[in-house]
Design a protein around this nucleic acid. Sequence first.
DNA 1: AGTTAGCACTCAAAACCAAAGAGTGCTAAA
DNA 2: TTTAGCACTCTTTGGTTTTGAGTGCTAACT
Lengths: 345, 345
Amino acid sequence: MELSERKQKILGAIVELYIKTGEPVGSKSLLSELDMSVSSATVRNEMAELSALGLLEQPHTSAGRIPTNEGYRYYVDNLMVDRQVDESLRRRIEAGFGSGISDPEKLLERAGEVLADLTGCAAVSTTPSGEGAYIRRVEAVPVGTRTAMIVLMTSTGVIKSKVARSDFDLNASVLESFYNVVKASFVGKLLSEVDTPMMQTLVASMGGDVFTLLPLITAVSDLAQEAVHTEVMLGGQSNILHHNNYYGNTAYELLEFLRRGEPLSKLLSTATEGKDVDVKIGSENPYRQLMKSSVIVSNYNIDGNRRGSIGIIGPTRIDYANLIPSVKYLTDLVGELLTQTFKEE
Amino acid sequence: MELSERKQKILGAIVELYIKTGEPVGSKSLLSELDMSVSSATVRNEMAELSALGLLEQPHTSAGRIPTNEGYRYYVDNLMVDRQVDESLRRRIEAGFGSGISDPEKLLERAGEVLADLTGCAAVSTTPSGEGAYIRRVEAVPVGTRTAMIVLMTSTGVIKSKVARSDFDLNASVLESFYNVVKASFVGKLLSEVDTPMMQTLVASMGGDVFTLLPLITAVSDLAQEAVHTEVMLGGQSNILHHNNYYGNTAYELLEFLRRGEPLSKLLSTATEGKDVDVKIGSENPYRQLMKSSVIVSNYNIDGNRRGSIGIIGPTRIDYANLIPSVKYLTDLVGELLTQTFKEE
DNA sequence: AGTTAGCACTCAAAACCAAAGAGTGCTAAA
DNA sequence: TTTAGCACTCTTTGGTTTTGAGTGCTAACT
């Protein structure tokens, strides 16, 4: 869509003013913000044309204009200039991560909280995906005569642990055969390879040990499943209430939607294929509950591989120019931290 | 405070009706709910006296009555009959805990979610306190030449892990001396004994090993700190919006308050000294933000020792008769599960 | 005594109405 | 193409009235 330079200027100003104030902007109040050597009538004509193009709309006939989703889209794609993430903000972000959080889950949770505080939006983050990760190590730590804590560590540094209880004593020889099985069949395997068929053939091939070892082996498999499954974390829910007005009265519905991890996880994973930062505006979102919200998502990479996402959810009149760079900055930082902490040396 | 039988009946009915409808109850509507062979005027007289006693109040002169905090208190202490937790509810609770969650943190988080869903309130739960718990086991699992994952397990089954990185290679002899130090100075110690002075004397006594071992030892100490510190978890925040009306317009403030763990944690720990289930009504709560809320808390025991709490937060017109037993039932169940899973055999 | 019918009174909430004001679209002149 | 002017629209605001549930009090009744 080609727009005259003046139309672009007007559209941009309307979007930014509306984002700032939340009030529909009329021709007069627009002129007082913008120094243009034209009259309000001229602006009105331009605004009428922008409405005809579907970029602006009116809540009712005698009100000012607000951007449509398409209006925001045009703004984000063509008009917006990314604000730099300024020094003080950077410091706040970095201060947000206390000294060395090494657990990736904790780190991501923290990242979500920091982002929520910073942006005044709800924030979501996913733990590093187990896709492509392999099992680096498995340990069985006896805690009783018949119980052991199974600890699994992945190549991405995720740790999962679980208590396994057997009907037989877990003496040294049992543990030894456990480690043999682990070494032969688990260590080095991709997490995604540990599935039901794999387990079935493994069990079938185990012979007599199966009764003593089964609970332990099952625990390992459970942990692998857990580790491959990325977890979605949510922070800053209360911020949604701040935007209450702009969400209509559906704040509750939105909160309920965000509580359910699955749709969110899908949302995050389908977003940002290739792109740097993905912005979905209002009805561009695939879920009914997000029709009045905008979502800004970016990926973080560990060692160059896309491993998870961090994003924020706010009203469609979210401050794109400032927040898109913030999200980007944070995800890059998280990626660096995780890469650094878990680089094999 | 002594009340005539009729006053008790009236007070009880008002409380229950108001809890059900949320509307101030007047003399007429009360009579239609209650079969009493007296006229509305008589009821009015009684209500006026109950108001004089501070048990009822009126939002404005020409409205019905609602219970004061003292009114609720009298109801809870004297009038209420606990409803039995019926079979179907029990099944829902038990179904809420999928098969064997062995990680106590996960279990408590789940318990909070279950309770929130069940009661329609926000729910809080604390992880088992490390008070009185000792270090059962420490493992160092090398993950690179200079990094190791330190895993600490407590006597209450809590697992904490963390990556430690050293400036020196972590070969077998380093690990051996690490295990020696651990065995001598950590295993069997109470978590609370691992504090700064203890670490200082330990480091002072270590001699030459200190440079290679310090990062590992520090990690152990960090983990002990983490483990002794109970974590507060919050679930069902969105339920608060359902009660929005009854909280006034301060839903946001309440949510913000609940986000901060410290005051909550204090609240839970000071509550229920000795008692079975503790109920704090409105201004009985020590925090301004909870003045319009009621809190129902109960403790769970592991192996007979009080280890943590689970509770719900709702409007003062919460359904005490049903929810108090539910909270009790759930905490008992959680205690049983945790005791069972982590009993030393 | 305790109870009840009756009645005047109160007050929030709903309904109604009027005026204000911001903004528009259109027309006609520059 | 731009602009001044104007009639029109529709929300917002504020004030007034009506309604209705509920009260407290008094006087009669049991």
